[in-house]
Design a protein around this nucleic acid. Structure first.
Lengths: 159, 159
DNA sequence: TCAAACCATATTGCGCACAATCTAATGATG
DNA sequence: CATCATTAGATTGTGCGCAATATGGTTTGA
C-alpha cells in the first residue's frame, strides 16, 4: 500500500487533478467569455455594433482624440489583421475616419466622427442594464476582474 | 451639499462605477479567454489540433462512446454551424468518424478512431505543462472556475 | 548617402462563432 | 393514416482572431 503510494510520487496519479484543473479553467474562461459576448449582442445590435466594435469605440471614446491602429491594438490586445477590417467597417458605418498620419506616413490615425461621438450616450446605457438583468454581485465582479487581469498578465509575461 | 448628493440618488453619478464594472468584467473575460487559448495554441499545434478541436476531443475522450453532434454541442455550448465543419476536419484528420444514426436518421454519431483514442495520451501532457509554466495558483484557479461557471450559468438562465 | 534594419499597417488564408434559413426525419394529433 | 409541429443537422453569410507574409516608411550606421 505504502509502496504503491510512493510509487506514484511524481507520477501521473496526483497530477491528474491539476491536469483537469487546467482544462476546466480554460474552458470556464472560454464559455464565460462567449456567454458574456452573447449577452451584449442584442443590446449592441440596436446600436449597429458588434462586441469587438463596441470595445474599439470604448477605447476611442475614452481617448477622445485620434489614435493610431497600434494604440487601439495595444489596449485591446488585437493586431492589425483583426483591427484593419473592423476599423474599415466602423468607417463604413460613418462612426470613424481613417487617415494617414502626415508626420509618420506609416501610421493610420483613427478619429471619431460626430455621429461616432454621439453614439456614446446611447452606449452608456448598455452595461448597467446587463449587469442588473443578470444580477451580478458587485464584490464578486470586482474580484473576478482582478483575478482575470492577473491571470492574463501572467500569461502575457511568459510569452 | 446634501441637496446635491440626494439629487444624484438614482441618477447617473453613482451608477457610473457599475457601468464601468460591466465593461471591465466583460473585457477581462474576453482578454483572459483569448490569452488562455493563445497559450494552448503552440502545444496543441504539435498534436495538429486547434483549441476548439481539442475541447471536442476532450468531450469524446471522456464519453468513450459515440456522441451525437447535439450532445457535443450541449457540453461545449456550441451549435451545428460551428460543430459540423469542425467535426468534418476531425474526420479529415482521421481522428473521428461521422455516421448517420440508423435508429434515428436525423442524428449523426461521432465516434473516435483508433488514432483519435491514441492521441489522448499525448494530449494529457498539455494542460499540466501550461499550468506550471504560467505559475497559476491552484486555489485561485479553483475559485475562478467556480465563479466563472456561476457567472456563465446566471447569464444562460436569463436568456 | 545609401543600404540594412526596423517599424506600422495591410493583405491573405484558415478556422471558429453565430444568426438565419433549409432539408429531412420523427412524433403527435385529429 | 394524413397532416402538422417538432427536432437534428447542414448550409450560408458575416465578422472576428491570428499566423504568415507583403508593402512601404523611417531610422541607423558604415
Amino acid at each position: 500500500m505504502m509502496q504503491e503510494m510512493s510509487a506514484t510520487v511524481g507520477g501521473v496519479a496526483e497530477r491528474l487533478p491539476q491536469l483537469e484543473l487546467g482544462n476546466q479553467l480554460c474552458f470556464a474562461l472560454y464559455a464565460a467569455s462567449r456567454a458574456a459576448t452573447r449577452a451584449y449582442g442584442p443590446e449592441l445590435a440596436e446600436l449597429g455594433l458588434t462586441y469587438p466594435q463596441y470595445l474599439t469605440m470604448l477605447v476611442l471614446w475614452e481617448a477622445d482624440a485620434p489614435l493610431a491602429v497600434g494604440d487601439i491594438g495595444a489596449r485591446l490586445h488585437l493586431d492589425s489583421g483583426t483591427l484593419t477590417p473592423l476599423l474599415k467597417r466602423l468607417e463604413d458605418l460613418g462612426l470613424a475616419t481613417r487617415t494617414r498620419d502626415r508626420a509618420d506616413e506609416r501610421r493610420v490615425l483613427i478619429a471619431l466622427t460626430e455621429p461616432g461621438r454621439e453614439l456614446r450616450a446611447r452606449a452608456a446605457e448598455v452595461p448597467l442594464r446587463l449587469f442588473q438583468r443578470y444580477g451580478i454581485d458587485i464584490d464578486t465582479a470586482q474580484k473576478l476582474i482582478r483575478d482575470l487581469t492577473a491571470l492574463t498578465e501572467s500569461i502575457q509575461a511568459s510569452t
